[in-house]
Design a protein around this nucleic acid. Structure first.
Ligand SMILES: [Mn+2]
Ligand SMILES: [Mn+2]
Ligand SMILES: [Zn+2]
Ligand SMILES: [Zn+2]
Lengths: 150, 150
DNA sequence: TTGCAGATGCAATTGAGTCGCAAATCAATT
DNA sequence: AATTGATTTGCGACTCAATTGCATCTGCAA
């Protein structure tokens, strides 16, 4: 069965403590919530999901998610609806959390709107660009139908 | 020398007439403006650019650009700043305008913020996705430094 | 010309995200 | 256990791209 919010609390605390930064309740609750998500969640999704276990101000949600991104614990995905969505940064093959954003693609379902990280997919780098251009970062975004909607 | 707004009017009119839809002044002015752009422009960019030749309401700019997209004449590019930018749909090798969105990548310069279409770059398709997922569309987005800023 | 569906202008509204500041909280120190 | 001070949080106000409703205008066909 799927991991629940409560079972994720200890791991969330440990992960935050490992950063050396302050361990706060909003950070723990937000990270535990992210840990139960199988797809990327928006700020509003997060506010709703947290409402049940640990209600917090929407501005705090913005700030905590931003903090998780700067810590490399989560990453941010731009949506076609001008909304950011957030997902736990992919774990390395060895199972440890990874501070860097591993190169991977994102898939958004046209039907249900859910966005997924495709950790196993990476754009073939380097991509050829016009003379004088210097590529620093590449994002690959797929759209279509997810397994549930197809 | 670069093509100017005025020299683009006839081609813009012809292009719009070819759709069979109504030929309106805002549509002509907007398309002629797009035709002079070497990089993608935002709604605000468009309002500013048009102010000189054919001032129009912001909402009209939104609606005309949306119409150009539905006609396949222009395409829309999501920016990291939550702003849409628009560019003429790439021409086919034979020089004719193309109603479909040819598969191509976009490059945004971290320094000057300009976004360019890289018509010659396309993601290697098909991309492998998890079982049950069906890919319909692929976007490749690059970030880095453009030729002018590098 | 006239008639009218479709396009435009203008004002009001939506909604994601940000800012400033006072109050609360975490963690180090006594 | 209490004190303290730097961080973090809550709350209200704000920004800004984009959308909506509605009255007016305009391109085009009859
Ligand atoms: Mn991801
Ligand atoms: Mn393009
Ligand atoms: Zn789906
Ligand atoms: Zn540049």
């Amino acid at each position: 069965m799927k991991p629940t919010y409560l079972t994720r609390i200890p791991a969330a605390e440990a992960h935050i403590r490992a950063t050396g930064e302050r361990l706060t309740q909003p950070r723990v609750a937000m990270l535990a919530t992210l840990m139960t998500a199988d797809h990327a969640i928006s700020h509003l999704d997060a506010v709703d999901a947290l409402a049940k276990h640990h209600p917090m101000d929407r501005v705090t949600v913005y700030r905590v998610l931003e903090w998780l991104v700067t810590m490399g614990i989560a990453h941010r995905i731009a949506g076609d609806d001008r909304v950011w969505r957030f997902m736990l940064t992919a774990a390395k093959p060895n199972g440890k959390a990874n501070a860097q954003h591993l190169q991977h693609a994102h898939f958004t379902c046209n039907d249900c709107g859910q966005t997924f990280c495709l950790d196993e997919v990476s754009p073939k780098l380097p991509v050829k660009v016009p003379a004088g251009f210097k590529t620093i970062d590449v994002d690959l975004k797929l759209r279509g139908q997810c397994a549930h909607c197809a």
